[in-house]
Design a protein around this nucleic acid. Structure first.
Length: 552
RNA sequence: GCGCCCGUAGCUCAAUGGAUAGAGCAACCGGUUUCUACCCGGUCGGUUGGGGGUUCGAAUCCCUCCGGGCGCGCCA
């Protein structure tokens, strides 16, 4: 029995008490089932009597007594006791608990999936780095977390699209092109250009492929280098992100946004909604109607579109493409955009509390040998995602970027991330998976076919077995909350506690028969438990985009 | 000046308004004849930055002060 099953049981009990007139008031929307911190309080607890007390007009403990009496008589529940101010503490029967193992093995990769976001189409936009340089450490956090958010949303039933907005238009592109062109020409990079070491590499590559560029007129040459460098750089970004296992569904070009007429359509939409006005020769959007601290210019007095106009059109375009929710993942230096983007949604006639979400991620730093890493091998002054992958590998990098809530600054300790001991969480979790895989392999070698043998769930009554089963049963709720709160860090945190529960079990519960010992139902039951644990660890790691190795 | 985020054990960090605030590291002590010791157990460690409020209950929500980070263009 999972917590979700239990919530259903409690709900039914409350509904029945109300139907019988033993209890008045409303049926709560959600039945909260918690895992008590202390084991003395049972496997699960519900504070539902406390929340019911007000509308029922009776003391919480009295309601709890009624509920406990009803629940005690329910199959699968061994004990229901009233405690404290009105909690009902529940203890499950070993058999009901143990069936979780079978349910997990039967569900396979689908275990943990939910329907909380069923029917929702969600656009998750992240990184959106300018195609004028490598993906760097500042983007890396989102590369991992953004992808994990999409994975978790999908697991909870949503249709999620990972989208990368390519800023392939405007002044930065020109400066980038001019920088590459200058180096190719043997001139110094302009003051306002790009000075990273990678610019010279780009220039050399392009000259090698297109020696004819050098003979072009200044104007033609600029365009030629800009376009060639842009394509090479974009490709390089895409390759690094692929290597990092973050695969975008849509690479959306800003140029195509303009070329398609989306900007005009977006502008039209805003005008229809009545939030556009003119002042001092410029065209403005009255974002202050919806909580922004100042109105924003869409078209400057010189007739040029602002970047904000593109942003606005892009949002409208996303909605026109059918997304219910547009999630933006931005760095802390962009937090000023939060109110602006929300106001854009409202100005477009949308619900800014539902159709748009802006998540802000704080800075990432890297430490090595006790010092902050400031220089990149490749890019000179910026640390790249490629540097990070080189240092610790994709698994450790993704895992540690996902492991922390994004709203606090993060310092990655590179020395720690390459360690292969239990102070390095990713290895700790992966090791648990490899350990189980090894046990299952050995079972096969011994000719044990546990899947076909009879599974007696009631045999899993050792304290460590019960703890492990409780941990396994938690997984669907963890996935659901990670999706709902857009907090994928809950998954690795959970995996660490699950790995601990497994190692503790393994430490005292022998799984396979020793020597010429006979195979018993107990061995079989423990193999089911192992298989279930392996499955959940694999499913959880998959939500992080981290591999689940069978051997280490 | 205005705004956003953060402040939890010596360190890095958890905790969806729930019961005695938890892990790992560090420090110290212990555990394996056979399934992966990359593991497990124990000890030590806290006025959740300070103060006030909301309620059955606050690290969590509100106010205020202190400390830190970031942002406030007809730039992109």
């Amino acid at each position: 029995m999972t917590p979700e099953d239990l919530a259903g049981v409690v709900r039914a009990a409350v509904a029945q008490l109300q139907a019988e007139g033993a209890l008045t008031g409303d049926l709560p929307e959600e039945i909260v089932i918690e895992r008590p911190r202390s084991k003395e309080h049972g496997d699960y607890a519900t504070p539902v009597a406390l929340t019911l007390a007000k509308s029922a007009g009776r003391p919480p403990r009295e309601i709890a007594e009624l509920l406990a009496g009803r629940l005690t008589a329910t199959p699968g529940i061994e004990a229901a006791e009233v405690a404290g101010p009105g909690f009902v503490n529940l203890r499950l029967a070993a058999d009901a608990q143990g069936q979780v193992a079978r349910a997990i093995v039967d569900a396979g990769t689908a275990y943990g999936h939910g329907i909380g976001h069923a029917g929702q189409s969600i656009n998750v936009e992240f990184i959106s780095a300018n195609p004028t340089g490598p993906i760097h450490l500042g983007h890396a956090r989102w590369a991992a977390v953004g992808d994990a958010i999409a994975r978790v949303l999908e697991a909870d039933g949503a249709s999620a699209v990972r989208e990368f907005y390519i800023n392939d238009r405007g002044v930065q592109m020109d400066r980038f092109g001019a920088s590459v062109q200058a180096v190719a020409d043997g001139r110094p990079v302009p003051e306002d250009g790009y000075h990273g070491a990678y610019i010279a590499d780009l220039a050399a590559q392009i000259v090698a492929e297109h020696p004819e560029f050098l003979g072009l007129s200044e104007e033609e040459q600029h365009v030629a280098f800009r376009e060639a460098a842009y394509l090479v750089q974009l490709k390089q970004q895409q390759q690094v992100l692929d290597l990092f296992r973050t695969h975008f569904d849509v690479w959306y070009s800003e140029r195509s946004l303009h070329a398609s007429g989306a900007v005009e359509r977006g502008m039209q939409r805003l005008r229809e909604q009545g939030h556009v006005f003119e002042l001092d020769g410029a065209v403005w959007l009255r974002t202050t109607d919806f909580g922004d601290d100042k109105d924003r210019v869409l078209i400057k007095a010189d007739g040029e579109m602002t970047y904000f106009a593109s942003d606005t059109a892009y949002y409208v375009d996303k909605r026109e493409r059918g997304f219910d929710v547009a999630i933006y993942l931005l760095g802390a230096d962009h937090h000023g955009y939060v109110n602006r983007l929300r106001a854009v949604a409202a100005c477009a006639g949308d619900d800014m509390d539902r159709n748009v979400e802006v998540l802000i991620g704080q800075l990432v730093k890297m430490m090595k040998n006790g010092e902050e890493v400031r220089l990149s091998k490749r890019a000179g002054t910026i640390i790249t995602l490629e540097d990070l992958i080189d240092e610790v590998g994709v698994d450790a990098a993704r895992y540690s970027l996902i492991r922390y809530p994004v709203d606090s600054p993060l310092t990655l300790d590179l020395d720690l991330l390459v360690k292969r001991t239990n102070d390095n969480p990713v290895f700790y979790v992966q090791y648990a998976h490899a350990r189980i895989a090894s046990v299952l392999r050995n079972a096969t070698d011994l000719g044990i076919d546990w899947r076909e043998a009879s599974f007696d769930a009631g045999l899993l009554r050792h304290e460590r077995e019960a703890d492990l089963l409780l941990a396994l049963a938690q997984f669907p709720a963890i996935v659901a909350s990670a999706a709902e709160l857009r907090e994928p860090h809950r998954v690795p945190r959970y995996l660490e506690s699950l790995a601990t529960a497994y190692h503790r079990f393994y430490d005292v519960c022998r799984v396979l028969p020793r020597g010429d010992e006979e195979l018993t139902d107990q061995h079989v039951a423990r193999l089911w438990l192992c298989a279930a644990t392996r499955q959940v660890i694999a499913n959880g790691l998959s939500l992080c985009g981290v591999s689940a190795p069978d051997r280490m």
